[in-house]
Amino acid sequence: MVNGLNLAFQYLQGFSVLVLAAVGLAIIFGIMGVINLAHGEFIMVGAYATVFGYHDLGLPLVASMALAVGVTAAFGMVVERLLIKRTYGRLFDSMVVTLGLSLVLSQGMLVLRGTSEPSVPTPFGTISYGAFSQSVYRVALALAAVAVLVGVYWLFTRTEYGIRARATIQDEGTARALGVRTERVYSTTFAIGSALAGLAGALLAPIVSVTPTMGGTYLVKSFVVVVVGGPSVVLGTGLSGGLLGAVDAVVTNVYGQTAGSIVLLVVTVVVIRFFQDGVTGFTDRVRDRLAREGT
């Protein structure tokens, strides 16, 4: 029997993990056209920075998480200057470079910190309903995911940086001719994407095992979300996180975890087969067609 509340919690969990993991990748890919295969390792760096702040520096959890966001943003900026900058416009080169970076990061962290980190406690308490109980933190995680989407939407539509960034995506040459320093836009964008990966790692640190190889799991999830989401960063990530989270929750609840993971990938294959440019690509086309018919 499927319990409605269990299903709802399962959905919140799936949605929040998918959105948090993917949003940084979506920004970097959507705006810069760089496929960052080290995205999972940026999440890992965020999780490690949280553990480091909490245990080694003795900071409160929230401050440790803020530290993690700062550390990954700075780290992302350095990586952009040293590596990514040299591969703009060369998709495959950027993939190889970031793949190499991901290996260096996970193995480097293994050398630096060993295989196991002390755990970070899960904040908030539990809520009980009937025979069941859930951690409140899971609800907080979903709220954080929504807040991140709102924040990114605001950033790209209401700030000057956002306007420059969108101008740069639309037509880099014209943007530059109009005085937008596209290099700085790229560098800022990469730092923001990295900071969001760091935030994902920080928020996930209290509920998962923090290990040097944890990035791999999230890389696959993020890619699935970005590919299904299509070109629009905020709407695409939100919709595809919502869709895939729902599929995952229902199937996992009824048929178990393994089936959930399989169906998630099957749905992705189906979406890509029929909507090559993802969910938002499809909605854009529909909107265009409606607009044409209207005129």
Binding site: M1, N3, N6, F9, Q10, Q13, V17, T115, S116, A131, F132, S133, Q134, R138, I207, V208, S209, T211, T213, M214, G216, T217, T252, N253, G256, Q257, T258, G260, S261
Partner: peptide
């Protein structure tokens, strides 16, 4: 599966079955 690290559905399933005790043979970091 060894790469699973989210257990809320498992925890729900245990609560639903309401056993006297659980036998756990989980393995690995995740």
């Amino acid at each position: 599966s060894l790469d699973t690290s989210q257990f809320s559905s498992t925890i729900n399933n245990i609560q639903e079955a309401d056993p006297d005790f659980v036998m756990s043979m989980l393995v690995g970091k995740n």
